[in-house]
Write a protein that binds this DNA or RNA. Structure first.
Lengths: 112, 112
DNA sequence: CAGATAGTTTAGTTTAAACTAAAGTATCGG
DNA sequence: CCGATACTTTAGTTTAAACTAAACTATCTG
């Protein structure tokens, strides 16, 4: 496992993308449709970041670009992520986390 | 493993602190001495973040505060971190990463 | 109790990550 | 070759993380 993997999975957004392409490959457009709160450009940049880290790979076919996880590159981290996603408790927490991000991440911490 | 663990280990600085208190407990001061490029306050804030995430614990003794890793809270992540730190290649990469942070993290990415 | 030591907290600043809008590239269908 | 589709890239903005300086709390020492 490369050091860059930890950086790649540090962001909830990138973890969500990774989850989407975990077992089936998806086009950039399909990934974007699954996260309608951000622009296509933003998704594309995160895909680029994931590619740089080596945790996903891309395949061009006609006008589309298909992305899928490179589970081998994640090494033992793959099992941790899978357990996270399968765990019901995790599912709830992830949902809350994403909901919060959508509505206003600025109220997340800090009371000052 | 709690979701907060991934956030906690996302930062190289926090990973370094975690490594320092991995097998022996250290005072806040000793941890700060090991990272002379930042202020004591900055270290204290990161310790607080690690505490909130539950990955370290603190013990007060006289004027000192002793910190140590809560390896159990890290679950399978503990093994990954240990392998990282034992791996010679990782050691080199970590050194480069820290060196870069010390000298000027602003030149890390982006070419524009 | 005064001063020193050990650490935390606060308020404000700097840096970096994530994002948007818009321009750019490539491929296809007519 | 034109317009549509699918996506990437760029330039600039917003948001959040990390940091600093300084004030603060607590404990010990004479």
């Amino acid at each position: 496992m490369e050091p860059a993997v930890l950086d790649a999975i540090a962001s909830p957004r990138r973890r969500e993308i990774l989850r989407l392409v975990w077992k089936k490959e998806l086009t950039a457009g399909a990934i974007h449709q699954a996260m309608p709160d951000v622009t296509f450009g933003a998704v594309s940049l995160q895909l680029k970041a994931l590619l740089r880290a080596g945790v996903i790979e891309a395949r061009a076919e006609q006008r589309n670009r298909y992305y899928k996880a490179r589970r081998a590159a994640l090494g033992p981290m793959a099992a941790i992520l899978e357990r996270m996603w399968d765990d019901a408790l995790w599912k709830l927490k992830l949902a809350a986390e994403l909901e919060e991000t959508r509505r206003g991440p600025q109220r997340k911490k800090h009371k000052h």
